[in-house]
Design a binder for these strands. Structure first.
Lengths: 218, 218
DNA sequence: GTCTATAATCAGATAGAC
DNA sequence: GTCTATCTGATTATAGAC
């Protein structure tokens, strides 16, 4: 029994078409910004009919929310893994330094300006992320007997995440004034606490793993 | 002698209508995001005819560029003043902490993703800003004999500006985890170098209200 | 589930009256 | 300079065939 118009009620949560639409939306958003993600352009990129978007998601807003959630859940998992590794600071720094995550969340922040449903979604997830991070930094700094007065965990956390984000944004604009020195300083400090970065501490292993994963098409 | 279709050639650089359009565009962008700035909505907000946009700016893109330039030039002046005051660090911190500037430039960054003309404009101005800032921090730290190894000027500069921006963004989402402690730490450090913030060092008189709010720690 | 066709709306932009 | 009217095309969303 297949409903003629499931819209936002009982459309299947997982299907090839649904996934293809989300994937295409993500790519489109990264390539040309959220404003470029219209139902028609999205469908044509996915090689599907625009009508399917409304079949699977109900509205474009709901598609954006589904896309955000998917990404947030993935990041949450990766973060949990990175923060529980033996080099949590490297993990945090490398995660915050991820180019596509930064760009995507930037687009969502801009989107949230006039789509209130997105706004609430972002706020909720951001708090989750932040709490996990703060807990980790606090724990690590305590274990290293780092003076709370000279390096408050909350400050260090905001420092790492916001500088990382800012560096990424500026890179896309071709701006790199002071970048090298800033990165060198931060990484020197992390090295002082956790030693040299080992491959295990980084997520996705950047390019190599991803390239390999894209090799297999199912 | 009035041209029937000046479009991007000889439309007057200053007029009440032109200014009203830019003002309305700025407000609209802050209220609902750049995507909400369509010729029709903009004109109706300004109480003018949509046709005037094309008369004064040629295209919507040109309007965005004009708007960005106007804001950037204003900020450049304010920054020059703030950085040449007797409390340049307070000036930098307070400027970077400006809510509307942050929101606006965030919108422009998102806009730049699919309007390449904006992109070049942002990059050029950002470098100007950054150079002025770096020069100031370097000078101030040298005069205070601050060790370049423990507090590299480039790092401190990126720290101040990007944390500031991040705090503002999060505030609009109702997120404040770690904010009070971070602000307290940074302002304590600035106070250590430049003493208590005096009204003169801040622009637009935002100080008093903020200072009161920052009084409490988290 | 996936498509065609279409409704209703809104976008950027121009022509021309005044 | 500012307006009305309009062209063209894109957008969200729905109805219904298969």
């Amino acid at each position: 029994m297949k409903p003629a118009r499931p819209v936002r009620t009982s459309a299947p949560e997982s299907s090839d078409a649904r996934t293809a639409l989300l994937d295409a939306a993500e790519r489109l958003m990264l390539d040309e910004g959220y404003a470029a993600v219209s139902s028609r352009r999205l469908a044509s990129r996915a090689g599907l009919d625009p009508g399917l978007i409304y079949y699977y998601f109900g509205t474009m807003d709901d598609l954006f929310i589904a896309l955000f959630r998917r990404g947030a859940e993935r990041s949450l998992e990766r973060q949990a893994q990175a923060l529980s590794s033996e080099q949590p600071l490297w993990g945090l720094w490398d995660m915050a330094h991820d180019p596509s995550d930064t760009a995507l969340s930037g687009e969502f922040v801009a989107l949230a300006n006039h789509r209130k449903a997105i706004r609430a979604e972002i706020a909720a997830y951001s708090k989750k992320f932040r709490r996990m991070q703060l807990e980790m930094v606090t724990r690590v700094f305590e274990s290293h007997r780092i003076d709370d007065e000279s390096w408050p965990p909350a400050f260090v956390l905001l420092l790492l995440t916001s500088i990382s984000r800012q560096l990424r944004i500026e890179e896309t604009f071709g701006i790199d004034i002071g970048h090298a020195k800033t990165i060198a300083f931060i990484e020197r400090r992390i090295r002082g606490l956790e030693g040299e970065r080992t491959p295990r501490a980084t997520r996705r292993g950047a390019t190599r793993v991803r390239a390999r994963r894209m090799g297999r098409r199912s």
